[in-house]
């Protein structure tokens, strides 16, 4: 198919789709309306279970089973990347050479690293109370480690980041989520039902029943997954070279 024909096809198809989308938009409830039946019920349930952050309650309590699926997608994607970006037979590993780093960059990276790591862990720990949670905090914590790559060099990063350990951590976190779910089953109610633990005092770290546990498991999984993913991409960029180069 030539580029001209393709452009025409995109123009016709896109125009028709645009018309349908606009017609659909005009039929939607008005923006900012007061009627949100699901939202109201979710808020009521979250407050009944002493979870201050309603979004965390939706993710780890009311829709905990969907989050299990989401976590499985993440796990499968990491597995796929590890397989796709492995070292093949016609490639070898080159020893990365240390590169000079500008002094301000080095200082800034080394000062910000512990702050960023702590921020990530804080966001994970307070997922049931304040905006944030396992997904967001996990990404912050994982990327904070990579400040060492910017501030020092690749070998320094490799020393604090044994990838094998993070792969095990990823699998353990997924198992922890499943075990928490099965605990609900053994405790006499449904899989992943939040009925096992006391709901605690509203707006404290231990409130929300199993929400903090599932949140922590997700935080660990996301942090490990991001570390493993970035490690594989960095390996491709820094270490793995084709034979004969």
């Amino acid at each position: 198919m030539s580029r001209r024909v393709r452009l025409w096809l995109v123009a016709v198809g896109g125009g028709a789709l645009a018309a349908l989308l606009v017609a659909a938009c005009l039929d939607l409830p008005a923006f900012g309306g007061a009627r949100h039946p699901y939202g109201d019920r979710a808020v009521r349930e979250a407050l009944a279970r002493h979870t201050a952050n309603t979004v965390a309650s939706v993710n780890f309590d009311q829709r905990a089973f969907d989050t299990l699926g989401e976590m499985t997608i993440l796990f499968a994607a990491v597995l796929g990347c590890v397989v796709l970006l492995r070292q093949t037979r016609d490639e070898h590993r080159a020893r990365p050479e240390p590169e000079p780093v500008a002094l301000p960059v080095r200082r800034y990276a080394l000062v910000v690293l512990p702050v960023a790591l702590l921020t990530g862990l804080y966001v994970v720990a307070h997922g049931q109370l304040s905006p944030g949670g396992g997904f967001q905090g996990g990404v912050v914590a994982a990327t904070s480690l990579h400040l060492l790559y910017l501030g020092a060099d690749y070998r320094a990063l490799e020393r604090i980041r044994p990838v094998g350990l993070y792969e095990v951590g990823d699998a353990l976190a997924v198992s922890a989520y499943l075990v928490t779910g099965i605990a609900g089953l053994i405790g006499g109610s449904a899989f992943l039902a939040n009925t096992l633990l006391p709901y605690g005092t509203f707006n404290t770290l231990s409130s929300g029943g199993t929400v903090p546990l599932l949140n922590a498991a997700i935080g660990m999984e996301v942090a490990c997954a991001v570390v493993v993913l970035l490690a594989r991409f960095l390996d491709q960029a820094v270490e793995i070279e084709e034979e004969g180069k």
Binding site: G33, H36, G39, V43, A52, N53, V55, P131, F202, N203
Partner: peptide, 11 residues
């Protein structure tokens, strides 16, 4: 979105 509403976080 809901007019004049805030984030669904009650901390």
């Amino acid at each position: 979105y809901r007019d004049d509403a805030t984030a669904p976080v009650f901390s």
